[in-house]
C-alpha cells in the first residue's frame, strides 16, 4: 500500500492536474507550459495558505 504524506499527496495531485489543465485550457505549447506552472503554484500555494489558516483557527 502506498502511503504518502499529506504534502506529498498535494504535490502529486497538483502535478498531474496541472498537466491536464495546461493541455486542455491553452492552445500553444508556450502558453501551456506557463499555465501549467501557474496552476501548480496555485494548487500548492493555496494548500499551504489554507493549512496555516486552519492551524491558527484551531489554536
Amino acid at each position: 500500500m502506498f502511503r504518502p504524506s499529506h504534502f506529498a499527496a498535494v504535490l502529486l495531485f497538483a502535478f498531474f492536474a496541472s498537466i491536464v489543465f495546461a493541455i486542455t485550457q491553452r492552445e500553444t505549447p508556450r502558453r501551456m507550459i506557463r499555465y501549467g506552472i501557474y496552476c501548480f503554484v496555485l494548487f500548492v500555494g493555496s494548500a499551504i495558505a489554507l493549512s496555516w489558516a486552519m492551524y491558527f483557527i484551531a489554536r
Binding site: 500500500m1 502506498f2 504518502p4 502529486l12 495531485f13 498531474f16 492536474a17 498537466i19 491536464v20 493541455i23
Partner: peptide, 20 residues
C-alpha cells in the same frame, strides 16, 4: 498531448488504487 494526458490520468488513477 495524448501521451501526457494518458500518463497523468492513468497515474492519478493508479495512485488512487495504490492508496486503497
Amino acid at each position: 498531448r495524448g501521451s501526457l494526458l494518458a500518463v497523468s490520468i492513468v497515474a492519478m488513477f493508479a495512485l488512487g488504487i495504490a492508496m486503497q
